[in-house]
Amino acid sequence: MKTTERVMLSDMLGDAMSYLHAIRLASNGLKRTDDVAAMDLLATKALEEVVKALGVVDNIEEVAG
């Protein structure tokens, strides 16, 4: 993976993390606590996947080294 591609992918995943944070904040405005909990769980799981993807990008770069 080229450095520019890695930077672009990292930037996109970073943006996704920001969107998930915004979703989590917006969900606090929901009236039903079970809805808030569900949105928070979804955002948490999605964030975990983004973090895993960033780790894969790092590993690819190390292997390609």
Rank of each mutant, 00 (worst) to 15 (best):
A37C: 12
E48I: 00
G14M: 00
I23W: 05
E61T: 15
L41D: 15
V50T: 06
G55I: 08
A38S: 08
D40N: 05
E62G: 09
T44W: 11
H21F: 13
R6S: 12
D58Y: 12
A16I: 11
V51Y: 05
E5V: 05
L30W: 07
L25P: 05
V36C: 04
T33I: 13
A26Y: 13
N59D: 13
T4V: 07
K31Y: 08
E48V: 00
A46P: 02
G65K: 15
M17C: 08
D35I: 01
S27G: 03
A53Y: 02
D34V: 12
V50L: 04
R24F: 04
E5G: 08
D35S: 04
I23E: 09
R6A: 08
G14R: 03
V63R: 11
K52C: 00
S18A: 11
A37I: 10
I23T: 14
R24W: 02
Y19Q: 12
E62R: 14
A26K: 13
V51H: 09
D58L: 09
T4E: 15
L9W: 06
M8T: 10
L41I: 07
S18W: 01
A46K: 02
D15S: 13
L41V: 04
K45E: 03
L42N: 06
D15Y: 14
L42P: 00
M17F: 06
D15H: 14
A46I: 06
D15F: 12
R6L: 09
K52F: 07
A53W: 03
A43P: 00
R6G: 08
E49W: 02
G55N: 03
D11H: 13
K2E: 12
